[in-house]
Computed example of a mutant assay.
Amino acid sequence: MDNILQVTTSLIRDLVPDYEGDVALSSNFEEMGVDSLSRVDLVVALEREFQVTIPDSVLAELRTVGDLASFVDGARAAGSAAQ
């Protein structure tokens, strides 16, 4: 999970360079200035990095970094179990 948080933090810093606060699991995307387009870019990058799929139907429910990291972690674990 730490690796997912590190990658997510790096991507958010790239996507929202004006955001100077900390990026934590409790950080809310809207409060950080991550708009819907940036959120899609973030999800696509995480899908590539961690070889997971995040359905559009789930995307709207992911409001915090922790929500996203938990989903990616679970999807990654499910993918590993399926192999």
Rank of each mutant, 00 (worst) to 15 (best):
I4C: 01
I4H: 00
I4D: 00
I4M: 04
L5K: 10
L5I: 10
Q6C: 11
Q6A: 12
V7R: 09
V7Y: 00
T8L: 01
T9W: 00
T9G: 10
T9A: 02
S10M: 12
S10I: 06
S10W: 10
I12C: 04
I12D: 07
I12F: 02
I12W: 09
I12N: 02
R13E: 10
R13V: 00
R13N: 07
R13L: 02
R13G: 03
D14C: 11
D14F: 06
D14Y: 00
L15S: 06
L15C: 01
L15K: 05
L15F: 00
P17Y: 03
P17K: 02
D18N: 11
D18K: 15
D18T: 13
D18Y: 07
Y19E: 08
Y19D: 05
Y19P: 01
E20P: 02
E20M: 13
E20L: 12
E20Q: 14
E20V: 08
G21W: 00
D22V: 13
D22L: 12
D22W: 03
D22H: 11
V23Q: 10
V23G: 01
L25A: 11
L25D: 08
L25P: 08
L25K: 09
S26H: 13
S26Q: 15
S26M: 08
S27G: 09
S27Q: 00
N28F: 08
N28I: 13
F29V: 02
F29M: 03
E30L: 15
E30M: 13
E31V: 08
E31N: 12
M32Q: 07
G33P: 08
G33K: 02
G33T: 03
G33C: 05
V34M: 02
V34K: 04
V34P: 01
V34Y: 04
V34L: 04
D35W: 05
D35E: 10
D35V: 01
S36W: 06
S36M: 07
S36I: 05
S36K: 09
L37K: 09
L37T: 09
L37A: 08
L37D: 04
S38C: 12
S38T: 11
S38K: 14
S38V: 05
R39S: 01
R39Y: 08
V40Q: 05
D41L: 10
D41F: 06
D41E: 15
D41T: 13
L42V: 02
V43S: 02
V43G: 07
V43W: 04
V43A: 06
V44L: 13
V44D: 09
V44E: 10
V44K: 07
A45Q: 07
L46N: 02
L46S: 07
L46I: 06
L46P: 03
L46H: 00
L46C: 11
E47K: 08
E47L: 03
E47P: 05
E47W: 01
R48E: 14
R48C: 12
E49K: 13
E49M: 08
F50N: 03
Q51C: 14
Q51G: 11
Q51W: 10
V52L: 09
V52I: 11
T53Y: 13
T53N: 15
I54G: 07
I54E: 06
P55F: 03
P55Q: 10
P55A: 08
P55N: 05
P55V: 05
D56Y: 09
S57D: 11
S57V: 11
S57A: 12
S57F: 09
S57P: 05
V58T: 14
V58M: 13
V58K: 13
V58E: 15
V58C: 14
V58N: 11
V58W: 14
L59Y: 09
L59P: 04
L59C: 10
L59F: 12
